[in-house]
Structures are given as C-alpha cells and as structure tokens.
Nucleic acid binder design. Sequence first.
DNA 1: TTAATATTGTAACATATTGAGACAATATGT
DNA 2: ACATATTGTCTCAATATGTTACAATATTAA
Lengths: 243, 243
Amino acid sequence: MSNNHNVTSVKGEEYLKGIAIDIVIFGFNENQLKVLLLEYKSTGLLGLPAGYILKNENLNDAARRVVSERTSLKDIFIEQFYVFGDTSRHDTKPIKKILSAEGASTQPDHWLLDRFISVGYFALVDFKKVIPQPDQISNNCQWYDLSDLPNIMLDHNLIIKKALETLQTNLDSKLIGFNLLAETFTMAELQSVYETILNKKLQRTAFQRKMLSLAILERVAKRMTGGAHKAPYLYRFIKNETL
Amino acid sequence: MSNNHNVTSVKGEEYLKGIAIDIVIFGFNENQLKVLLLEYKSTGLLGLPAGYILKNENLNDAARRVVSERTSLKDIFIEQFYVFGDTSRHDTKPIKKILSAEGASTQPDHWLLDRFISVGYFALVDFKKVIPQPDQISNNCQWYDLSDLPNIMLDHNLIIKKALETLQTNLDSKLIGFNLLAETFTMAELQSVYETILNKKLQRTAFQRKMLSLAILERVAKRMTGGAHKAPYLYRFIKNETL
DNA sequence: TTAATATTGTAACATATTGAGACAATATGT
DNA sequence: ACATATTGTCTCAATATGTTACAATATTAA
C-alpha cells in the first residue's frame, strides 16, 4: 500500500507520464459539505489529493488507490467527472516550489514539470470513518468547508466547482447521496444531505414521500435520539439487486 | 489544417505521449443514428476517428480538430463523456497490423505501441453537411448504422455504447438533440431524433407541448412538404441567451 | 371542382405527480 | 400530567403528463 518510490525523483519511471488524477473527496458533517485538502510541506500551498497511474494499473484503480491512501478507507464510491486538459494549466511555479521544499531537483526535464492532463474524480465518503493521511510531500491533510474554501493551487478551485456541479446534476438520477452517510441514517439526515448539495430547502413531506416511493430504503429500527420529540426511523440504502 | 508530420513515425514528437482521443461522431439520417468509422488501409480493421494532442494544444481543441478533419465541418458540438484507462485496452496487435500496412516501423519502442489512455468524446453533426475524409492511415471514412455495427478494433464498440448511454441520459436535460438536425426542422423530425436516440415511441401531442413549453424553439415558416397533408411549421433552435 | 386522405396544431379531459398544510403519535423535559 | 419539538402520514390543491378528439390544410384521386 505504501509507496516505495519517490514521486519527486526526476524520472518517475513507475508512472505513466503526463497524466495525473485529481480527486475531490466530499464528506458531510454538521450539515456542511467538506472537501479534503493537502498542505504541501513548507510552502503554504494547498492542493487536492492527487496521484499518478502505475504502468500496469487501471485508471479507476489508481483513483481508488489515491482515495484509500488519503482516507484510510477502502470500497469507496468514486466517479469520473471531467478531464482537465487546457494548456493554461501548465504552471510550473507551484510544482517547483514543492520540489524545492523537498530538496528535489527542479531541473527542466523533471517529469513533474512537464505538461499534465488531469482526470478529475470525485469521491463520496462517510466523514466519520475517514482518518486523513498526508502524502509523502505534504505535512497536513484535513477537511475544509466547501462553502468557505481558501485559494488552492493551479486550477483546483475550478476542479472542485465542476465536481460539485456534476454531483448536483447526478444526485437525483444516480442516487449517490447515501454514500455521504453512515450505514444507517434518518430521513432528516438524508434530507440535509440533499439540501446542502443542492443548496436549497426541500419540502419535508414531499421529500419523504419521494424517497420512500423509490423503494431503495429499508427501514431498520427506531432511534432514540435524546431529543424531546418522536423518535425517527433509521433507514438503510438497498443496493440495486440487479447488479 | 493538414498534418505535415507522420503519426506513424517512431517518436511522434509533436504529440503528448500515452494520451489519445477517440470520437464517436453521431449523425442522423432516414430515422437512423449513424456513426462515422474509418477503415485502415489494407487491414480490414475499422476504428473510431481518433487523434492525439499537440504539445501546445488544449484537449478540447484537439478533439474539435479531429472532428473537423474527418467531417470537413467546423463549429461542432462535442462533449467529453468518459476516459478509458483499463490496462486491458493495451492490445498492440491491431496497431502493429496498421503500422505494417503503412510500411512503418513496428519495433517495440514505437510510441503508438505504448499503453494509451483514451479520452472519449462524442460529436453531434448535421449528417447532410458532412463530407467524410479518411485520415492519413485509412482509405475509407463512412457512416455505419448504429443499430447494425460491425466489429470495431480494440474497445471501440464499448466506447460507442458508452457514448450512446451518455447521449440518452443527457438528451432531455442538456437539449443537445438539435445538433443532429439542420438549422430548421419540423416537430416530426425532432421527435424522430428523440425516439431514435431513446429507442422508444413518444406521444406526439405531449412531445410537441413539452418542446414548445421550453421556450427554446422559434417558429420560422410553414413548409410545403409535397405530402398529401397539412404543412408543418419549421422551427429553429434558440441558443440560450444567457450565454 | 369536389371529395378523400394523411398529417398537423391545439384543445379538452383524465390521470399522475408534486406542493403545501393539517394532525395525530411520541420521546423527553418540566 | 402537561408542554414541546419532531416525525409519519393523510388530505387537498396545483401542476404536469397521458390520451383522445377534432378542426385545419396540402396534396391526390375521382
């Protein structure tokens, strides 16, 4: 699981050249969407979790590997959403800064200083299960509020924006919101996920009726919440039995 | 516009290595979806129009360039739909066959024999405006019925399948079907496009009511069709004025 | 010239879906 | 025991969609 090769070495021979994977890892906590970011050592630079593709590795497996390495989770929901391939992305300044901080070579033929095409993925994870892990060249890996993001290096703010747009578009049709919650959840929690992603209030009763009509939820038990009110049911997402 | 460099040369130095673009060019004629395919010289192999990215070229521009070269059109609707990056795609047999037929080198370090990641695009074009153009290493470029496709090399049948699925999914939400028709069209023609893509019959009156309610169609004039019946209106697609 | 025919545009009605409010049920705190 | 907040479900209104009907009309046939 751990790298035994230094990504900052001049050649990067284990990896396909010119192709990177950038991953927007979404979490959900306290009615807020969160994004996992790395802080590169001694540079103040922030970046999305990223990685490269091993020469005999499937693209999707590489994306899963990167998510696993940063979150300590496995079996994660990921989805490709866009490939970023404009020439204007090719900005060597932050890369040089990161390499310098590592004491690595910044000679022009360093593989990381070439132009890269980035395949954008997003991942939806259970916030509470994640144990953030910095990578080799960062000293910090932590959650940031999506609604209050700092400046992130290169075009990563744009990548997050596009990821969110895709998530919003696909939320209803692909029924993927459940991946942000624990195994069991209340209808109110699910509604909060939807409201936060779509950035609008939803009708409580209509939401409940619709979700139940989809026949994708299994009622598990009542939960005693400790609140001064009726206890809600807990639900579990029923995976599509045709798969 | 024309290549002054031979893609079959060993180095392919003008292009980014390891990244290809495969394009599913959809046309619509006689109530059928069509796909443009190339036949490689003296090999019997069929393939999707494909290309590589020039070192200082935007990814999307490269895709547009390839579509333009094969169709003789410009200003074409294209959309990324998936990146194909499984290791199982790496099958050098058909590539060697094509290179051999060209009299080109098939030594193992030929750049085209490396593993490639393919960015899949689909394009929607006006069938009647297209003048198919073979590329440098093919001797034929022609339309095939989507419903009766031959075997195509590598994973290109799969790529077409995925392109169609994306087209079906996005047809209503992104209002892109118009790109398959001429500048003006009848409601019946538009309905036929929808029915063919979605592979199901639609209710005539409900379809008309819905399309008109979207406020994206401008009525142009009546057309005398030569048929023994009432003449239909012609419509034009109104591009979103907020863009 | 007139009638027959096929298709078009729109209206009308039925049915289905969604929006919005009402209300009983119920854990907990007072 | 009562007050309070939230939940689950019901009802009715508003909207959207499915379906049928029918007048309008460009051509062909009589």
